[in-house]
């Protein structure tokens, strides 16, 4: 599988490490969130048969985190974004 890195171009998936659902980026504030919110963040994931947004880490490359949109049925990758750009587009500072 090839991941088309937005800065470095197409790279083999062997250079990357998979983390999981991109919703992991949206951690609730641990000081104010309820137990239920933290529980849902920690343990509940969607398991879609189709398009899935997920986090990949370019460990053997520039060590960037990517948000990869991948179809879990076909493994077709339709979009690759830098996770920092995704976070900033949601108003986060880093």
């Amino acid at each position: 599988m090839i991941i088309n890195h937005p800065l470095l171009g197409p790279r083999d998936a062997a250079e990357f490490v998979y983390l999981g659902d991109a919703s992991l980026m949206d951690r609730p504030d641990g000081m104010t969130a309820s137990d239920e919110e933290m529980h849902d963040y920690m343990y509940l994931r969607d398991n879609p048969a189709g398009e899935h947004r997920e986090l990949w880490y370019h460990e053997q490359g520039d060590r960037s985190w990517l948000v990869v949109t991948r179809n879990t049925l076909t493994h077709e990758i339709t979009m690759v974004e830098l996770a920092r750009d995704v976070a900033r587009s949601r108003g986060r500072s880093k």
Binding site: L8, R11, D12, A14, E15, Q60, G61, D62
Partner: peptide
Amino acid sequence: ARTVMEHMG
């Protein structure tokens, strides 16, 4: 570029 060669970074 950084990459992997023969399993070595």
